[in-house]
Design a protein around this nucleic acid. Sequence first.
DNA 1: CGTGGATTTGAACTTATTCAATGTGCGTGG
DNA 2: CCACGCACATTGAATAAGTTCAAATCCACG
Lengths: 229, 229
Amino acid sequence: MLTQTLNTQVHGSTIAPATHPVSDQFGAITGHVGLVASEFSYRKDEEIYGEDEPAEYVYQVVSGAVRSYKLLSDGRRQIGAFHLPGDVFGLESGATHRLAAEAIIDTTVRLVKRSSLEKAAGTDVQVARKLWAMTAGELRHAEDHMLLLGRKTAMERVATFLLEMDRRLAVAGMMALPMCRRDIGDYLGLTLETVSRALSQLHSQGILGFSGARQIVLRNRQRLHNLDA
Amino acid sequence: MLTQTLNTQVHGSTIAPATHPVSDQFGAITGHVGLVASEFSYRKDEEIYGEDEPAEYVYQVVSGAVRSYKLLSDGRRQIGAFHLPGDVFGLESGATHRLAAEAIIDTTVRLVKRSSLEKAAGTDVQVARKLWAMTAGELRHAEDHMLLLGRKTAMERVATFLLEMDRRLAVAGMMALPMCRRDIGDYLGLTLETVSRALSQLHSQGILGFSGARQIVLRNRQRLHNLDA
DNA sequence: CGTGGATTTGAACTTATTCAATGTGCGTGG
DNA sequence: CCACGCACATTGAATAAGTTCAAATCCACG
C-alpha cells in the first residue's frame, strides 16, 4: 500500500530480461512521453494493492513475480494472472483496481502515476493507442483463460499452464516457478492436490523432469501440446 | 460473413431500449465523429464472424441477441459473453476477432468499419479514450467471469447468471431469455442438465417463476443474491 | 392439433475434491 | 558443514459435485 518513501528516479534502465521476447511495454510509453518512473520493492506475500482500491499507479515487474486475484466472501480465490519480469500490471481504464495484487516472492517494480499516463494519453494519440493495446492484451489472456476454466480437464489445464510458463520464463530449457501449488491451483480453478497429481503423472510419463518441486524441465513439449485439447 | 449487400445509412436512430440503463456506447463514438453506420440482419444460429477472422467491423445489437464463444478442437465450447440490444461487440484492438460470434435468434445489428474507428481514434483523443474504456469494460466482465468459472458452484453460477440477465434484460420484472439451456451451460461452464436442475430447484423453492422455459420471473432477488457466494 | 426440438427428470458413473497422513527439501542456526 | 524444523509437496482413501446416458414431458410453431 505504498507507505514507504518512494525512490524517485528518471526512467531509462532496461528491465525486460533477454528471455522475455516482447518489447518493453512500459518503456514504449514512458520513453515516448518522458514520464518519471520510480522503483519500489515488496516482500513475499505483501499486498501491492487491494481489490476496488483507487488505481493510483501502473506497475511493471522489474524482478520477482506478482499474482492478481479476486476473492469470494468465504475465501475462495481466483488468480486471474501472474505477472513476471517485464510485465505491466495494475493498468486500469476506470478509477479502481478490479483485482488485488500481491508479491509472490520478494519483488521490485517500477511504477508511474496513473494520472500522468492519463495526461500523456490526452495529448499523445500514440500513448492512448498503446494503453488500449495493453488492456486488449489482458482481455485476450482472460478470454483464453475462460475457455480453460470453463471447459478444460484438470490435465489439460496443467498442460496449458506449463506451456505458458515455459514460454514466459524458461531459461536454458528450465523453468523456475515462483509460485506454490496452491497458487497454481487457484489460477487453474483446481485444488493444489489435483495440480500435484497431474504434475506427478507427467513426471512418471517422462514428459517433464523435476529438480526440486518448482524447478521443472519440459522433456516433451509436443506431448504436452497434445494433452492440451 | 457479410456476403449480402449492406443497407447503408447515416446513423442516428436510437437503439438502446429504455431498460438498458447505460448510455449508447456506439452513439458516443459515431455521433462524435460523424461516422457512417449500416444495418444488417442475421438469422437464428447464423455466424456473424469466426474466431481469428480479420476484424473488419464493429457491431452493435439493435434487436435480437448474440453469443461470443471459443471452441476446443473436439467441439467443447465456452461462451464468453452474450450481447443484448444496445451492446457493442466485435471491437478489437488487434487485427482479428478473438472469439466467434453467432446470432442466438434473428438479430439486427448496426456496424461501422473498424478502419474508420481507427482513423477517428487517431484524430480524436476522446474517441481513443472511449475505445479503451469499452475494451476495459469487456475485461472487467471477463475477470468476473473467471471467478465464476474457476471457483463458484453450479448453483452460484446459475444465481449469478439470473441476476445478470435480470439486470440486463428484465422488462416489468420478467426476463425473456433468448438463449437455450445449452447456451447457458456453455456460458457457465456447466452441462445443460445441471443448469436445468438448478433452475428447477430455484423454482421449487419459490425463488423464481416460469411462464414457459425461457420466461422467468425472479420472485426473491435477495435469496438469489445469498446463493451467489 | 400434431410434430420435433427443447427441457426436465432419473440413475449410474466419472472426475475432482476433501480429509488425512507421509514425504521432501530448503533455510537457518548450531 | 551438518542437523533440525517447518513449510511445502506428494500420495492415499473416501466423498461429493457435476456429468453422462437415457427416457419422459413440455411447448412453440407450423
